[in-house]
Design a protein around this nucleic acid. Structure first.
Lengths: 232, 232
DNA sequence: TTGACAAGTTAACACTGTTAAGTATAATAG
DNA sequence: CTATTATACTTAACAGTGTTAACTTGTCAA
């Protein structure tokens, strides 16, 4: 245990490479210390994000404040600025998280069927369900802060736009399989996206008028209309 | 000129009816005075509304403040509260004004054609143009404050919902004329509304992605799809 | 032990919507 | 003609917001 060289000869390992564990005790302590500090920092960052997510869903976009987040995690409001440049960056991370779940939901719709047109309808249904289940997220993602949509994702997260590749792929496969009329895939994707967005968006913005029942019946019409238009 | 009875006999006219001009000079002055004051009050109210409208369009929903309005009209912020109960009521009046223009635009679309299906498409086009021309209003009306949609209009203004009667009427006439497949008119109206809303809303929320060109091509598809679905 | 750096806090600025209290002026009553 | 009252409007304040600068405190390296 005390078999370590405590001689003043210091520079045993190169200073710029951390691949191998340091030799001296002080070096090891130092390494563990910085490691612990980094973990604490990451933990606090995650705590901020989780509290922000929760409070955002609870209070909505308009009534979501950094001071609430600070109070929730038991830190001073300015501490948040040590981890996020401003409120927008925090919101953007909520959006990225939302698109992650959104993409998974659409993919699950794709996976639930094998026929291209059935897949398309399943994706549409997944889209609808996501919007109705997470209205506050959906608002932020598609209605309030649309500029986030094209913003490059922070770190090895997929960009919001990537959530839609499953849609274009479905359309491609449908055309290739001869089940969907040949046509511009981007135009098709926009048509599908925008129309289903209308249903979801109005159901969210005017829940009393365009509630789930309305959304359902409209979705049925929407499905029939789309099938009639896209099917060969 | 001085031929007026200045005798102390006062109560010639009944006190509760203002239909006839008062007899004594003091009564006449009083009447004109209150009239002038009422006009001034109404003028200030209108000035507030106009300044609010302008600043709202200029700065958008998020950055629109009562203090800005007050500064624009040269009054203290609290003066606004003598004419409107709170910020929401001011916004609601902007919405009502927006729906007025919106209804006129849709009606103009209706009037521009005679065939029911052509009218439907003209209404859709008018809807699209309104949204693209007045994105800030459209946001407020359909995306940000959807709860205003069913709120009863203030005074002899038509309610927001009334703007859509032209749509249901067109569908009715189309079915009656045998040009549109029989079906539930409300469901048809919702289908038409929600899908066109999706196009407009995304064009507004993501102008860089779903710009006018995208909206145009999608609208073309939308029109064809709708025709195919609704036409007999 | 000293100096540098990191983490976090306090105080402040410029805003926001909104309310209560105060003021000056005009209309009315005696 | 004076006294009161109502009207129109303002000032000051409250509680809240995002954000910045300056300060304190603790940890580590030399």
């Amino acid at each position: 245990m005390a078999n370590q060289s405590s001689s003043p000869v210091k520079r045993v390992t190169s200073k710029s490479e951390d691949t191998k564990p340091p030799v001296t005790r002080s070096k090891r302590i130092q390494a563990k210390s910085t490691n612990r500090r980094q973990k604490q920092k990451a933990a606090l960052r995650r705590a901020i994000l989780e509290a922000a997510e929760e409070l955002f869903v609870e209070h909505g976009y308009e009534n979501f404040s950094l001071r609430q987040v600070a109070e929730a995690i038991g830190y001073s409001p300015t501490t948040i600025y040590l981890h996020f440049s401003d409120k927008d960056e925090l919101l953007f991370h909520i959006v990225v998280e939302g698109f992650k779940n959104f993409g998974v939901a659409l993919q699950a719709g794709y996976d639930s069927e094998t026929d291209p047109m059935a897949r398309l309808m399943a994706i549409g249904r997944a889209y609808l369900e996501f919007g109705l289940a997470h209205p506050v997220h959906y608002r932020l993602m598609f209605m309030q802060r649309g500029e986030f949509f094209l913003r490059p994702a922070p770190d090895n997260c997929e960009a919001p736009l990537d959530s839609f590749t499953v849609l274009t792929r479905t359309l491609e496969e449908g055309i290739s399989a001869g089940k969907i009329k040949p046509g511009d895939i981007t135009e098709y994707a926009n048509l599908v996206w925008m129309t289903i967005h209308g249903i979801v968006a109005l159901a969210i913005s005017m829940p009393y008028l365009a509630d789930r029942t309305y959304a359902e019946t409209t979705y049925t019409h929407y499905g029939n209309m789309l099938r009639q238009y896209l099917c060969t």
